[in-house]
Amino acid sequence: MVQYLLEDSRVVDFVSHLQACKTVYAPHRKGTSSFAFAPVDDPTAVVLDYNRTLHSVKKYFLPPTETLLSFDLRTNEFTESEIVPCDAVFLGVHSYDLRAVHKLDHNFRQENPEKNYLRRREEAAFVGVSFEPDAFHFSGSVGIGSRDSSGFDVFLTRIAAGYILTAHTPVGQELVDGFVMPEYTGDLPVPPGFKQHIYVPQDKLSEVFEHSYRNDVWLETAEKCVGCGTCNLVCPTCYCFNVEDTVEITIDGGSRARTWDGCMLRSFTEVAGGEVFREESAARQRHRVYRKFKYISDRTGEPWCVGCGRCNQACTAGISIVSIVNRLVNDYDREVVETA
């Protein structure tokens, strides 16, 4: 595969080149110290050196709120909402976020393939960029390196002079065609290391989680957790939702919409009649972590966490999924030694 050099001074030109082909979504600054994906208007506003965006690109395929249908209360009839595919380039996506999209693909395709997600998602092209792990990233521990280009159409690897650009698919080649760059023949510097780690692979984690259902860490974490649901809502592999009808003030019509929901929210498991079947905060905490490392993983063989670090960074109580998992591993290992 040919490696090109995309110099820093030409990044804006490259963004403009992509814009000439398709709509481009890329990270922008948001607020004082955050980043968010947004449609590119001004190519100079695109930020490729960023730690992580508030939400992953999931928000384009599974929008925070999505109208499923509109209804007319006078005729009792409904109109389905149009699903518009994201025929666009997603520029500056980190490896863990694309991996998260692949996991969502699995969730929305299995058993009952869901048109809403899959239609939106199918035309999307991805231009990835490497990242420098900060204090919260741990994707290396779940098999996703900071320069992992798998699944991308085009990938940009950060070096001192700019980016090494590689096209990985015919679609990627098409995106790059016509944009002239010198070939890059230099070496690839050693990637920067991760600052935190889960120290064991998924098959060991499956075993650890088999024995961690009653670990004290769930109760201890529940003391700190205020149940705000932020960890679910920022997670790129969470996809649970709630459906609600809204009626217009004229009371002649309204709409049915689905909205992101989260298993950490107490009302998530409330059923008709008022029973909340996962009432304890500790049980909800456990459910969240088991969903990332056990329940789906046992069926797919992969962790369902991509190590982006969003849940930890966004938690006002400072709860870290890495600490929880490492604690379970340590407790399990100690128990095994003690009983041996």
Partner: peptide, 28 residues
């Protein structure tokens, strides 16, 4: 509704005001 204000902040993809150094009661 019986969930925290944080939920609506996240749905809007707001930057957390706690990250701006504010003390926010949104979580409860």
């Amino acid at each position: 509704p019986d969930s925290a204000v944080c939920v609506e902040c996240k749905l809007k993809e707001n930057e957390c005001v706690v990250d701006k150094g504010m003390i926010c009661l949104g979580p409860i």
